[in-house]
């Protein structure tokens, strides 16, 4: 039985009619047309569907939309500030952290959560952090470089803000 659910996505409130069994990823893509969130494996493995729920990276294919009511959801569409890309988006561009781009939204959103917890990670820590995000093109090397570069940019930005 469908019911109204209000979701706060990228700072905007959306009320949608959903069944309790509707997965968050399907509501994002099919109901709200936010197709930057991808479905890769559909079995909670690949991380392409990763979004932020209250700042935490979450697999939206393993979350019911009804469970997300009252939370703040951020998808890849909500990361840039107007025309200014998020430092992670810039770094993936500059370091060639993508080829086909399918895994990129999930990679970036996982990295947002990770860098909030660990602002100055080693390469090894970055590799562990993206354990739940599969990339079939790059061999991960440039993704690690991109996250490391973004970490430096974010640290510099925070230092600037604190000064």
């Amino acid at each position: 039985m469908e019911r109204p659910v209000t979701l706060n996505i990228n700072g905007r409130s959306h009320t949608v009619q959903v069944e309790p069994r509707a997965l968050l990823v399907h509501v994002l893509r099919d109901t709200l047309n936010l197709t930057g969130t991808h479905v890769g494996c559909d079995t909670s493995q690949c991380g392409a569907c990763t979004v932020l729920v209250d700042g935490q990276a979450v697999k939206s294919c393993t979350t019911l939309a009804v469970q997300a009511e009252g939370t703040r959801i951020t998808t890849i569409e909500g990361l840039a500030r107007g025309d200014t890309l998020h430092p992670l988006q810039m770094a993936f561009w500059e370091k060639h952290g993508l080829q086909c781009g399918f895994c990129t939204p999930g990679m970036i959103l996982t990295a947002v959560d990770f860098l909030a917890q660990n602002p100055d990670p080693t390469d090894d820590e970055i590799r562990h952090a993206i354990e739940g995000n599969l990339c079939r093109c790059t061999g991960y090397q440039n993704i690690v470089a991109a996250i490391k570069s973004a970490a430096a940019t974010l640290r510099a930005g925070n230092a600037g803000a604190a000064a």
Binding site: G47, V58, K59, T62, A129, E131, G132
Partner: peptide, 9 residues
């Protein structure tokens, strides 16, 4: 256990 996303939930 698993990965960041799974540990968050």
């Amino acid at each position: 256990i698993a990965d960041i996303q799974v540990r968050n939930r």
